[in-house]
Protein backbone atom coordinates (compact mmCIF):
# COMPACT_ATOMS: atom_id res chain seq x y z
CA UNK A 1 0.00 0.00 0.00
CA UNK A 2 1.12 3.53 -0.76
CA UNK A 3 2.77 5.69 1.88
CA UNK A 4 3.06 9.32 0.83
CA UNK A 5 3.65 12.69 2.41
CA UNK A 6 1.21 15.59 2.26
CA UNK A 7 2.77 18.95 2.97
CA UNK A 8 0.60 20.90 5.38
CA UNK A 9 0.70 23.94 3.15
CA UNK A 10 -0.92 21.82 0.41
CA UNK A 11 -3.73 20.57 2.63
CA UNK A 12 -6.06 23.27 1.30
CA UNK A 13 -5.65 22.00 -2.28
CA UNK A 14 -6.39 18.46 -1.15
CA UNK A 15 -9.50 19.64 0.66
CA UNK A 16 -10.66 21.53 -2.43
CA UNK A 17 -10.12 18.40 -4.48
CA UNK A 18 -12.17 16.33 -2.04
CA UNK A 19 -15.03 18.82 -2.01
CA UNK A 20 -15.39 18.45 -5.79
CA UNK A 21 -16.30 14.76 -5.59
CA UNK A 22 -17.56 14.41 -2.08
CA UNK A 23 -19.70 16.01 0.57
CA UNK A 24 -16.71 16.60 2.83
CA UNK A 25 -17.12 16.65 6.59
CA UNK A 26 -14.32 17.65 8.92
CA UNK A 27 -13.94 18.93 12.48
CA UNK A 28 -15.02 22.55 12.85
CA UNK A 29 -15.49 24.66 15.91
CA UNK A 30 -18.75 26.51 16.35
CA UNK A 31 -19.79 28.28 19.54
CA UNK A 32 -17.13 26.40 21.50
CA UNK A 33 -18.21 22.94 20.32
CA UNK A 34 -16.18 20.89 17.83
CA UNK A 35 -18.26 18.76 15.47
CA UNK A 36 -17.87 17.23 12.03
CA UNK A 37 -19.60 19.70 9.74
CA UNK A 38 -19.88 20.15 6.00
CA UNK A 39 -16.77 21.88 4.68
CA UNK A 40 -17.33 24.80 2.41
CA UNK A 41 -13.96 26.48 2.74
CA UNK A 42 -10.69 24.75 3.72
CA UNK A 43 -9.88 27.38 6.35
CA UNK A 44 -12.96 26.42 8.37
CA UNK A 45 -11.56 23.10 9.43
CA UNK A 46 -9.32 22.36 12.35
CA UNK A 47 -7.13 19.27 12.34
CA UNK A 48 -5.20 20.54 15.33
CA UNK A 49 -7.68 19.10 17.76
CA UNK A 50 -7.97 16.24 20.23
CA UNK A 51 -11.37 14.90 19.38
CA UNK A 52 -14.73 16.32 18.37
CA UNK A 53 -17.22 16.90 21.17
CA UNK A 54 -20.00 15.21 19.26
CA UNK A 55 -19.40 11.96 17.45
CA UNK A 56 -19.09 11.83 13.63
CA UNK A 57 -21.64 8.98 13.58
CA UNK A 58 -24.21 11.74 13.05
CA UNK A 59 -23.20 11.99 9.40
CA UNK A 60 -24.22 8.43 8.59
CA UNK A 61 -26.87 8.15 11.27
CA UNK A 62 -28.32 11.64 11.75
CA UNK A 63 -30.08 12.52 14.98
CA UNK A 64 -33.14 13.28 12.87
CA UNK A 65 -33.74 11.73 9.46
CA UNK A 66 -36.87 11.83 7.33
CA UNK A 67 -37.24 8.29 6.03
CA UNK A 68 -40.60 8.47 4.30
CA UNK A 69 -43.17 10.97 3.14
CA UNK A 70 -46.82 10.27 2.50
CA UNK A 71 -49.59 12.11 0.74
CA UNK A 72 -53.17 11.08 -0.02
CA UNK A 73 -52.56 7.39 0.52
CA UNK A 74 -49.24 7.21 -1.31
CA UNK A 75 -45.95 6.92 0.48
CA UNK A 76 -42.44 7.42 -0.77
CA UNK A 77 -39.25 6.40 1.05
CA UNK A 78 -36.65 9.16 1.27
CA UNK A 79 -33.00 8.27 0.80
CA UNK A 80 -29.92 10.43 0.90
CA UNK A 81 -29.24 11.53 -2.66
CA UNK A 82 -26.28 13.88 -2.35
CA UNK A 83 -22.65 13.32 -3.19
CA UNK A 84 -20.92 10.45 -1.37
CA UNK A 85 -19.54 11.45 2.01
CA UNK A 86 -15.88 11.97 2.78
CA UNK A 87 -14.73 12.45 6.35
CA UNK A 88 -11.39 14.03 7.02
CA UNK A 89 -9.56 13.90 10.33
CA UNK A 90 -11.50 11.06 11.95
CA UNK A 91 -9.79 9.74 15.06
CA UNK A 92 -9.00 6.00 15.12
CA UNK A 93 -11.57 5.29 17.83
CA UNK A 94 -14.37 6.94 15.86
CA UNK A 95 -13.36 5.20 12.62
CA UNK A 96 -13.60 1.92 14.52
CA UNK A 97 -17.09 2.85 15.69
CA UNK A 98 -18.28 3.03 12.06
CA UNK A 99 -17.32 -0.61 11.61
CA UNK A 100 -19.42 -1.64 14.57
CA UNK A 101 -22.38 0.47 13.47
CA UNK A 102 -22.10 -0.99 9.98
CA UNK A 103 -22.29 -4.48 11.43
CA UNK A 104 -25.36 -3.52 13.46
CA UNK A 105 -27.12 -1.92 10.49
CA UNK A 106 -26.29 -4.66 7.99
CA UNK A 107 -26.86 -8.03 9.58
CA UNK A 108 -27.84 -11.15 7.64
CA UNK A 109 -31.41 -10.70 8.80
CA UNK A 110 -31.81 -6.96 8.38
CA UNK A 111 -30.22 -4.34 6.23
CA UNK A 112 -30.89 -0.74 7.06
CA UNK A 113 -31.17 1.03 3.69
CA UNK A 114 -30.88 4.49 5.25
CA UNK A 115 -27.55 3.73 6.91
CA UNK A 116 -26.27 1.86 3.85
CA UNK A 117 -27.15 4.65 1.43
CA UNK A 118 -25.10 7.08 3.45
CA UNK A 119 -22.26 4.82 4.49
CA UNK A 120 -21.49 2.49 1.61
CA UNK A 121 -19.60 4.87 -0.68
CA UNK A 122 -18.06 6.97 2.06
CA UNK A 123 -14.39 7.80 2.14
CA UNK A 124 -12.84 7.83 5.61
CA UNK A 125 -9.57 9.67 6.08
CA UNK A 126 -8.36 9.16 9.61
CA UNK A 127 -5.94 11.14 11.71
CA UNK A 128 -3.69 9.33 14.18
CA UNK A 129 -3.61 10.56 17.77
CA UNK A 130 -0.12 11.68 18.72
CA UNK A 131 -1.46 13.37 21.79
CA UNK A 132 -4.12 11.49 23.74
CA UNK A 133 -6.57 12.93 26.24
CA UNK A 134 -6.57 11.99 29.91
CA UNK A 135 -9.99 10.41 29.30
CA UNK A 136 -8.84 8.19 26.40
CA UNK A 137 -8.76 4.41 26.88
CA UNK A 138 -8.97 2.89 23.40
CA UNK A 139 -6.14 0.52 24.32
CA UNK A 140 -8.50 -1.30 26.70
CA UNK A 141 -10.85 -2.15 23.85
CA UNK A 142 -8.69 -3.45 20.99
CA UNK A 143 -7.99 0.06 19.75
CA UNK A 144 -4.84 2.07 19.28
CA UNK A 145 -4.10 5.80 18.92
CA UNK A 146 -2.66 4.99 15.49
CA UNK A 147 -5.22 2.28 14.62
CA UNK A 148 -6.37 2.01 11.02
CA UNK A 149 -9.57 0.00 11.34
CA UNK A 150 -12.45 1.56 9.49
CA UNK A 151 -10.29 3.99 7.49
CA UNK A 152 -9.36 4.25 3.84
CA UNK A 153 -6.37 6.45 4.55
CA UNK A 154 -4.57 7.17 7.80
CA UNK A 155 -2.86 10.52 8.23
CA UNK A 156 -0.17 10.99 10.87
CA UNK A 157 0.96 14.47 11.79
CA UNK A 158 4.75 14.63 11.41
CA UNK A 159 5.07 18.34 12.04
CA UNK A 160 5.48 20.00 8.63
CA UNK A 161 3.80 17.17 6.76
CA UNK A 162 1.21 14.43 7.16
CA UNK A 163 2.24 10.85 6.51
CA UNK A 164 -0.59 9.44 4.37
CA UNK A 165 -0.92 5.66 4.40
CA UNK A 166 -3.45 3.87 2.22
CA UNK A 167 -5.44 1.28 4.17
CA UNK A 168 -7.94 0.11 1.53
CA UNK A 169 -7.97 -0.12 -2.27
CA UNK A 170 -10.12 2.99 -2.29
CA UNK A 171 -7.52 4.86 -0.28
CA UNK A 172 -4.78 3.50 -2.51
CA UNK A 173 -6.42 4.76 -5.68
CA UNK A 174 -6.95 8.21 -4.18
CA UNK A 175 -3.29 8.41 -3.17
CA UNK A 176 -2.22 7.25 -6.63
CA UNK A 177 -3.88 10.36 -8.05
CA UNK A 178 -1.70 12.62 -5.90
CA UNK A 179 1.12 13.06 -8.39
CA UNK A 180 2.98 15.77 -6.53
CA UNK A 181 3.03 14.13 -3.09
CA UNK A 182 6.41 12.74 -2.11
CA UNK A 183 6.99 9.11 -1.18
CA UNK A 184 7.47 8.67 2.56
CA UNK A 185 11.00 7.81 3.61
CA UNK A 186 12.20 5.21 6.12
CA UNK A 187 12.85 8.07 8.54
CA UNK A 188 9.24 9.27 8.21
CA UNK A 189 7.90 5.81 8.99
CA UNK A 190 10.26 5.53 11.93
CA UNK A 191 9.07 8.89 13.23
CA UNK A 192 5.45 7.76 12.92
CA UNK A 193 6.04 4.55 14.82
CA UNK A 194 7.85 6.47 17.52
CA UNK A 195 4.87 8.81 17.83
CA UNK A 196 2.61 5.78 18.10
CA UNK A 197 4.75 4.34 20.84
CA UNK A 198 4.64 7.57 22.82
CA UNK A 199 0.89 7.86 22.39
CA UNK A 200 0.36 4.28 23.53
CA UNK A 201 2.49 4.90 26.61
CA UNK A 202 0.35 7.88 27.56
CA UNK A 203 -2.77 5.70 27.86
CA UNK A 204 -3.85 4.11 31.15
CA UNK A 205 -2.55 0.62 32.02
CA UNK A 206 -4.73 -2.06 30.45
CA UNK A 207 -7.31 -4.06 32.35
CA UNK A 208 -8.49 -7.60 31.66
CA UNK A 209 -11.17 -6.48 29.23
CA UNK A 210 -11.53 -9.97 27.77
CA UNK A 211 -13.15 -11.07 31.04
CA UNK A 212 -15.84 -8.38 31.03
CA UNK A 213 -18.43 -10.35 29.12
CA UNK A 214 -18.20 -13.41 31.29
CA UNK A 215 -18.24 -11.32 34.46
CA UNK A 216 -21.36 -9.49 33.30
CA UNK A 217 -23.08 -12.81 32.57
CA UNK A 218 -23.35 -13.24 36.32
CA UNK A 219 -24.19 -9.66 37.27
CA UNK A 220 -27.87 -9.34 36.43
CA UNK A 221 -28.83 -8.81 40.07
CA UNK A 222 -25.64 -7.12 41.21
CA UNK A 223 -25.96 -4.16 43.61
CA UNK A 224 -23.51 -2.22 41.41
CA UNK A 225 -26.34 -1.00 39.16
CA UNK A 226 -28.25 0.46 42.08
CA UNK A 227 -25.07 2.11 43.32
CA UNK A 228 -24.44 3.84 39.99
CA UNK A 229 -28.12 4.71 39.58
CA UNK A 230 -28.05 6.65 42.84
CA UNK A 231 -26.24 9.48 41.16
CA UNK A 232 -26.99 8.78 37.47
CA UNK A 233 -29.31 11.50 36.20
CA UNK A 234 -30.74 9.13 33.59
CA UNK A 235 -30.07 11.76 30.98
CA UNK A 236 -28.88 10.97 27.49
CA UNK A 237 -25.66 13.00 27.42
CA UNK A 238 -23.54 9.83 27.36
CA UNK A 239 -25.62 8.09 24.70
CA UNK A 240 -26.01 11.09 22.43
CA UNK A 241 -22.28 11.80 22.43
CA UNK A 242 -21.39 8.10 22.17
CA UNK A 243 -20.02 6.99 18.78
CA UNK A 244 -21.47 3.50 19.11
CA UNK A 245 -24.94 4.09 20.58
CA UNK A 246 -27.41 3.48 17.79
CA UNK A 247 -30.90 3.13 19.24
CA UNK A 248 -33.63 5.09 17.53
CA UNK A 249 -37.31 5.88 17.63
CA UNK A 250 -39.65 6.31 14.68
CA UNK A 251 -42.30 9.01 14.69
CA UNK A 252 -44.83 10.37 12.28
CA UNK A 253 -45.25 14.10 11.86
CA UNK A 254 -48.24 15.47 10.02
CA UNK A 255 -51.84 14.38 9.72
CA UNK A 256 -53.72 11.43 8.24
CA UNK A 257 -53.52 12.88 4.72
CA UNK A 258 -49.95 13.97 4.46
CA UNK A 259 -46.83 14.08 6.49
CA UNK A 260 -43.52 12.42 7.05
CA UNK A 261 -42.04 9.60 9.00
CA UNK A 262 -38.84 10.45 10.83
CA UNK A 263 -36.23 8.46 12.63
CA UNK A 264 -34.80 10.06 15.76
CA UNK A 265 -32.07 9.00 18.14
CA UNK A 266 -33.43 7.46 21.29
CA UNK A 267 -31.70 6.45 24.47
CA UNK A 268 -32.07 3.54 26.89
CA UNK A 269 -31.66 5.92 29.83
CA UNK A 270 -35.08 7.44 29.16
CA UNK A 271 -38.06 5.82 30.87
CA UNK A 272 -40.10 6.13 27.68
CA UNK A 273 -37.61 3.98 25.77
CA UNK A 274 -39.16 0.71 26.93
CA UNK A 275 -42.63 1.88 27.89
CA UNK A 276 -45.16 -0.39 26.24
CA UNK A 277 -48.56 0.45 24.81
CA UNK A 278 -50.27 -1.13 27.80
CA UNK A 279 -48.48 1.33 30.09
CA UNK A 280 -46.21 -1.39 31.47
CA UNK A 281 -42.53 -0.53 31.58
CA UNK A 282 -40.09 -3.42 31.96
CA UNK A 283 -37.29 -0.99 32.83
CA UNK A 284 -39.16 1.32 35.15
CA UNK A 285 -36.37 1.36 37.71
CA UNK A 286 -33.44 3.71 36.85
CA UNK A 287 -30.96 1.01 37.96
CA UNK A 288 -32.33 -1.32 35.28
CA UNK A 289 -31.65 1.31 32.67
CA UNK A 290 -28.11 1.84 33.96
CA UNK A 291 -27.59 -1.91 33.77
CA UNK A 292 -28.87 -1.97 30.20
CA UNK A 293 -26.30 0.60 29.11
CA UNK A 294 -23.32 -1.36 30.43
CA UNK A 295 -24.72 -4.78 29.55
CA UNK A 296 -25.37 -3.68 25.99
CA UNK A 297 -21.87 -2.36 25.45
CA UNK A 298 -19.87 -4.99 27.27
CA UNK A 299 -21.98 -8.10 27.00
CA UNK A 300 -24.76 -8.20 24.38
CA UNK A 301 -22.82 -6.52 21.58
CA UNK A 302 -19.84 -8.79 22.22
CA UNK A 303 -22.17 -11.76 22.01
CA UNK A 304 -23.89 -10.58 18.85
CA UNK A 305 -21.04 -9.00 16.93
CA UNK A 306 -17.87 -10.28 18.53
CA UNK A 307 -16.69 -6.73 19.28
CA UNK A 308 -16.77 -4.41 22.25
CA UNK A 309 -19.68 -1.99 22.15
CA UNK A 310 -17.38 0.82 23.31
CA UNK A 311 -14.33 2.23 21.59
CA UNK A 312 -12.81 4.12 24.51
CA UNK A 313 -13.15 7.69 23.22
CA UNK A 314 -13.97 8.97 26.71
CA UNK A 315 -16.66 11.47 25.65
CA UNK A 316 -19.09 10.13 28.24
CA UNK A 317 -16.42 10.55 30.92
CA UNK A 318 -15.79 14.16 29.98
CA UNK A 319 -19.44 15.14 29.88
CA UNK A 320 -21.21 13.06 32.53
CA UNK A 321 -22.51 15.73 34.93
CA UNK A 322 -22.19 13.37 37.92
CA UNK A 323 -18.84 11.80 37.02
CA UNK A 324 -19.93 8.29 36.10
CA UNK A 325 -16.61 7.16 34.68
CA UNK A 326 -16.94 4.09 32.49
CA UNK A 327 -13.34 3.13 33.30
CA UNK A 328 -14.22 2.97 36.99
CA UNK A 329 -17.33 0.94 36.21
CA UNK A 330 -15.31 -1.55 34.15
CA UNK A 331 -12.84 -1.95 36.99
CA UNK A 332 -15.71 -2.48 39.42
CA UNK A 333 -17.20 -5.12 37.11
CA UNK A 334 -13.88 -6.99 37.02
CA UNK A 335 -13.57 -6.78 40.81
CA UNK A 336 -17.01 -8.28 41.34
Amino acid sequence: MKKLKLKKKNLGDFINELTRDYALYAPQEKEGTISFSLVEKPEEITLDYHNSDTSPKEIFFPQKEVILTYQDGNSQPVFYEGKPFALLGVRPCDAKSFQLLHQVFSTKKFEDPYWLTRFKNALIIGLACNDTLPTCFCNWLDGSPHGKEGMDILLTDLGETYLAEAVTEKGESLLKQQKDWEEASEADLKQASKLEETALKSLPPKIESAKLKEKLDGMWDDPLWEEIAQRCLNCGACAYLCPTCHCFDIQDEGNEKNGKRIRLWDCCMYPLFTKEGSGHNPRKNPADRVKQRFMHKFNYIIQNFDKYGCIGCGRCITYCPVNIDVREVLKQILET
Binding site: Q63, C235, A237
Partner: peptide
Protein backbone atom coordinates in the same frame (compact mmCIF):
# COMPACT_ATOMS: atom_id res chain seq x y z
CA UNK B 1 -26.99 23.76 20.14
CA UNK B 2 -29.37 21.50 22.07
CA UNK B 3 -29.07 17.75 21.40
CA UNK B 4 -32.17 16.84 23.43
CA UNK B 5 -30.21 14.76 25.94
CA UNK B 6 -32.28 16.24 28.80
CA UNK B 7 -29.22 16.55 31.05
CA UNK B 8 -30.53 20.03 32.00
CA UNK B 9 -33.95 18.73 32.95
CA UNK B 10 -32.58 15.78 34.84
CA UNK B 11 -29.97 17.82 36.71
CA UNK B 12 -32.62 20.35 37.71
CA UNK B 13 -33.91 19.79 41.24
CA UNK B 14 -37.30 21.22 40.31
CA UNK B 15 -37.90 19.07 37.23
CA UNK B 16 -39.34 16.15 39.11
CA UNK B 17 -42.64 15.60 37.33
CA UNK B 18 -43.40 11.92 37.20
CA UNK B 19 -43.88 12.33 33.49
CA UNK B 20 -42.33 15.29 31.74
CA UNK B 21 -44.41 17.00 29.07
CA UNK B 22 -41.84 16.00 26.43
CA UNK B 23 -42.43 12.36 27.28
CA UNK B 24 -46.18 12.55 26.73
CA UNK B 25 -47.20 10.56 23.72
CA UNK B 26 -51.00 10.83 23.79
CA UNK B 27 -51.06 13.56 22.71
CA UNK B 28 -47.48 14.37 21.91
Amino acid sequence: KCIRCYACRNACPFCYCEQCIVDDSQPQ
